[in-house]
Write a protein that binds this DNA or RNA. Structure first.
Lengths: 199, 199
DNA sequence: TCGAATAGTTACCGACCGGTCACACCTATG
DNA sequence: CATAGGTGTGACCGGTCGGTAACTATTCGA
């Protein structure tokens, strides 16, 4: 007999799910509470407002992403280039599995009101991801780590919204190949003749 | 003395602007009508519903984009590679000017309800853009036109949402360089020794 | 066993949403 | 001058939104 999660946890994970499916503005607190098998009053006892809940849900999602990075590093210890390829594959898999894109990025698109507390959560999450990716590129010894990591970041974000806009037959179909081509074009000559190629 | 635009045109262009600023779900028909210096009744006489207006606004935006392509071709006639570079520069400029990203892509993120009439407009627009870009890549004689055009598409979409999520100091900062690097890596050896490079 | 904290229930609030009504207005054309 | 079609006005509809009040039921540790 499994112990039921606490109401607060049920609310957060349910909110994540419903925000993803319907958009943040597309679902009401009442529906979230009901889907979490609780009620609006309990929801408001744990979260002062819907905006609070939004932030908490985004934080919850971003924590799951942090775990993914630890797992990535553990899978190929001391081999950053292998980790980089593994990152690309994982993102491609995530792209294939998930039809809603990145919750954090979607929230950034949806919440236009500047000063919204969620923006800090989103920015913090995205910057963390970018920094870890850049470190990976740097450790992998590619020629222009910042440029490659930004390229991969943009390809990833672009693949997600592209899939939303034009479906899985659009540009996102070639996400993996595009990433691999980008990595290849920045790869340093391995160990022979340590001459750098200009232009 | 300039003649005032017809109410219908005022409504469409105002709706475009307000949808961009506040999001489609973030603005009401009443506010749109008022900002267009007319009223809700007139709005509903021209557009049967808010969804109709959304579609019309998106169509309006996408028509302006079509004009951009014609202008692009005229600026460098019979020089597809120059047009391609010009496309990148124009997108980079647009990225710098516009803080709201692509209206069509944002609408795709925001409108999750499948079957929404706007999805057809969005898909049609995005596919048209992708086809024109692909043709440009093909005419420019790069080695893998589909892969390059999809790469550029993803970089563009990714740059827009990336700017929304992490501001102009994020990955979008290197959008232009990333595009140029991608183009360079697919460029064919110009005219000497017409041998194709494998691998 | 008692008491305090947490959770559930119902009803309610004011605001706003998309959408419609009846009616007055204006202007252009016959 | 008359008439007709597009426009403006304000009130109104049912529904939903985020958020709260008052009260009851449950749980659980001291």
């Amino acid at each position: 007999m499994q112990v039921r999660q606490a109401p607060r946890d049920r609310i957060v994970s349910t909110a994540c799910e419903l925000f993803r499916q319907h958009g943040i503005r597309g679902i009401g607190v009442d529906a979230i509470a009901e889907a979490a098998e609780t009620n609006k009053m309990t929801l408001y006892r744990h979260f002062g407002s819907k905006d609070d809940l939004i932030c908490e849900a985004l934080r919850f999602t971003s924590e799951k992403a942090a775990a993914f990075w630890d797992q990535l590093e553990a899978s190929h210890p001391n081999d950053p280039m292998a980790q980089l390829h593994s990152w690309v594959e994982a993102r491609a898999q995530c792209l294939a599995d998930n039809q809603y894109g990145c919750d954090l990025a979607n929230a950034a698109v949806e919440l236009k009101e500047q000063g919204h507390p969620a923006h800090a959560v989103i920015e913090n999450f995205k910057i963390t991801q970018q920094r870890r990716l850049e470190k990976l590129c740097r450790d992998a010894g590619v020629s222009e780590p910042e440029l490659l990591s930004d390229t991969l970041s943009m390809l990833m974000e672009g693949a997600q919204v592209s899939k939303l806009a034009t479906g899985s037959e659009g540009p996102s179909m070639r996400f993996l190949r595009a990433c691999e081509a980008a990595i290849a074009s920045f790869r340093q000559p391995v160990k022979s003749t340590a001459e750098t190629v200009g232009a």
